[in-house]
């Protein structure tokens, strides 16, 4: 019977440890746009359309420029999970988009966060996915369905 009072704080501490481990196991991915873009929030449906190349312009008519990380990056894996596609299906999908004439070209793929940042600065209609911990000045993080990265219910992780 005397075990309980001493075990309780220990168990609480371990529960906290579990939650910490759980949180670190999921990487939150931020949706970033050019800082000049007035948008602050996007719905999950619109985000899906943009990432799938079905939506081509922002509400003010500015063309959307999709900037992506290459295969193997966490941002790419999260993107594929979000669109429920494999890497090969995604490549085939974009080839089809171009052949149909629904897109001029496949998304711009960059190999580093630094180049991602520079591309964000160059294209005023740019949008990209970035690991939340790698977000840099010059990248404007927008909410998805009113949620910021890491918030419960945030769809990109």
């Amino acid at each position: 019977m005397g075990v309980k009072p001493r075990a309780t704080p220990l168990l609480l501490g371990l529960a906290f440890l579990l939650l910490t481990l759980r949180a670190t196991a999921q990487v939150a991915i931020a949706v970033v746009v050019n800082p000049g873009n007035p948008i602050t929030n996007i719905s999950r449906g619109d985000l899906r359309k943009i990432l799938a190349g079905e939506k081509h312009s922002w509400p003010r008519g500015q063309p959307i420029k999709l900037i992506e990380r290459g295969p193997g990056c966490i941002e790419r894996l999260v993107l594929l999970r979000f669109l429920a596609m494999s890497e090969s299906e995604y490549k085939q999908y974009w080839t089809a988009q171009v052949f149909r004439g629904d897109a001029d070209a496949e998304p711009l793929t960059v190999p580093s966060v630094g180049m991602q940042k520079e591309a964000m600065a160059l294209f005023s209609g740019a949008i990209s996915l970035v690991d939340a911990k790698d977000v840099k000045p010059g990248m404007k993080v927008i909410q998805v369905d009113g949620l910021l990265p890491g918030a419960p219910g945030y769809p990109l992780h």
Binding site: A105, E106, L108, T109, V110, P111, G114, M115, E118, A119, A121, L122
Partner: peptide, 12 residues
């Protein structure tokens, strides 16, 4: 400076 280097117009 690195910040002003134009990014690639297409994938490397």
């Amino acid at each position: 400076p690195a910040e002003q280097t134009p990014p690639p117009q297409s994938a490397p």
